[in-house]
Nucleic acid binder design. Structure first.
Length: 419
RNA sequence: GGAGGUGUCGCCUAGUCCGGUCUAUGGCGCCCGCCUGCUAAGCGGGUUUGGGUGUUAAAGCCCAUCGCGGGUUCAAAUCCCGCCACCUCCGCCA
């Protein structure tokens, strides 16, 4: 949810943002009109209510005939007040629906759609591999990935990580947690089922609602990332951020329906319904948010470098941002079998968009409250196994274990094919 | 799944039976001031949150807020219904 004051004071800024996203800018004026109606209805309703309360006090003290007369008047007023309150509620709900339909105001992202990203830098050198095997072939050789049985048990886009595959994922996630702890994050293991208001608060029930698994019988949602639970962690709280941002590293399973991506990335574990992720989440002051965003990106790059995967950093275009994000940087790892970069991390600055919906605030110097900024970023996911396996493969199908992961794999240096 | 209990403005707490005098009591903590070599004590004042109105900004005024949502009533912390969380016990169960 964006700041209604920004909308009133500078509607053109919001229209420009909507244009940059390729979204409907007419909503801006619809919200403004609804806001005016809402406030008018509220003033009427509150005035009547004040009158009613005053009269109520007279009723309490009056006696006999006077009381009877006042009571008659009070009943009439109560009826009017009820009507006005109902009208105010209708207008308020309409305003709420409209303002929640607005995406966050873009901040510095390049204009355009999915293909209009800007490459900020490329890091690491791509390995020279003659006819590289893809991650699934490697995974099967190593006894690390079993998609056939995944499909047997759960359907397409499910898999088992087996043996060294399971160990490799645990090693990767543990490395990520260790890095996070080193950087001062509080590690968290989060719920993966959340209430509707939390899911809505993070902005995932907007245009991407069909990506989310819902358990109708319990009215709960399966999270697509621990960002959801972490954002909700401080809902309805007033935080003290005077000592700096509150930083959490969430470890969780993530669930995605992948509706609308039929036929894309059907091979292997690039696009799956369930995976694991270590996610950074930061609550910080709005003033500090852009700098914090750079820091999150820095930590992502640190882990990518630790596992020795070549990558590039892109500044995601406005039209490809989620509704909560004002700006987003992705790190894309090199995938030799595809000869291209694929998304491995994504860090978003959601400014105050999520915090407003979830009511996460901090206290200003003057004692007033204001919404905080929230940011998130990927520190490691199951998908990284694709890049790790492929970039470190050897001609015989063995895979060199990056040094940083070895301590988490009992010192194992090379994964070798099982006979 | 069943029975009982609890939920009040940071924390503790009064009020709920019997609706209006609740503009929610008191203590602790915190903030401001006074007083006193300093500190402590003492004294006085302030201290939920959201919104509306107003303004250069503010003050002020108004509405809502006693776990959440409904209902009854001229009027609800208080009465009724539903839900949630926590505690105690019973049953069941990886």
């Amino acid at each position: 949810m964006i700041d209604v004051r920004l909308l009133r004071d500078d509607p053109e800024a919001v229209r420009a943002s909507q244009r940059a996203r390729g979204a409907d800018e007419g909503v801006v004026d619809a919200v403004l009109a609804a806001d005016a109606r809402r406030r008018a209805a509220m003033t009427t309703s509150e005035g009547l209510r004040a009158e009613q309360k005053a009269l109520g006090k007279q009723v309490a003290q009056a006696k006999g005939e006077e009381k009877t007369a006042l009571l008659a008047r009070a009943k009439e007023l109560a009826e009017q007040a009820r009507g006005a309150a109902a009208e105010a509620e209708v207008q308020g709900a309409e305003y709420d629906r409209l303002i929640r339909s607005l995406a966050n105001v873009v901040q510095g992202a390049p204009p355009g759609g999915e293909d209009d990203f800007v490459v900020l830098r490329e890091v690491g050198s791509k390995p020279e591999i003659e006819s590289p095997k893809d991650h699934l072939e490697l995974g099967e050789l190593l006894g690390a990935i079993d998609v056939e049985r995944g499909a047997k048990v759960s359907g397409s886009r499910f898999y088992f990580l087996t043996g060294v595959g399971a160990r490799l994922e645990l090693a990767l996630l543990n490395l990520a947690v260790a890095k996070a702890v080193e950087a001062g994050f509080t590690p968290m293991i989060t719920p993966t089922l959340v209430k509707p208001e939390v899911m809505a608060g993070t902005g995932f029930l907007g245009e991407h609602a069909d990506e989310v698994y819902r358990l109708a019988a319990d009215d709960l949602y399966l999270v697509g990332t621990s960002e959801v639970a972490l954002a909700g962690y401080h809902a309805d709280e007033i935080l003290d951020l005077s000592a700096g941002p509150k930083r959490y590293a969430g470890w969780s399973a993530c669930y995605r329906r992948e509706a609308g991506s039929h036929g894309r990335d059907t091979r292997g574990i690039i696009r799956v319904h369930q995976f694991h992720k270590v996610e950074m989440f930061s609550f910080c002051s709005l003033d500090d948010a852009a700098a914090e965003h750079e820091r999150l990106l820095g930590w992502e790059e640190e882990v990518l470098q630790a596992v020795e995967v070549p990558y590039r950093v892109i500044d995601v275009a406005a039209g490809d941002l989620g509704s909560s994000a004002a700006r987003k940087f992705d790190c894309e790892g090199w995938v030799p079998s595809q000869g291209r970069y694929r998304e491995l991390t994504s860090t978003s600055n959601c400014t105050t968009f999520q915090a407003r919906r979830l009511s996460v605030r901090e206290r200003g110097d003057d004692g007033s409250t204001r919404p905080v900024a929230t940011l998130n970023g990927t520190l490691a996911t199951t998908r990284w196994l694709v890049a790790i396996l492929e970039n470190h493969q050897l001609p015989d199908g063995s895979v060199r274990v990056p040094e940083a992961l070895r301590p988490y794999m009992g010192g194992l240096e090379v994964l070798t094919p099982v006979s």
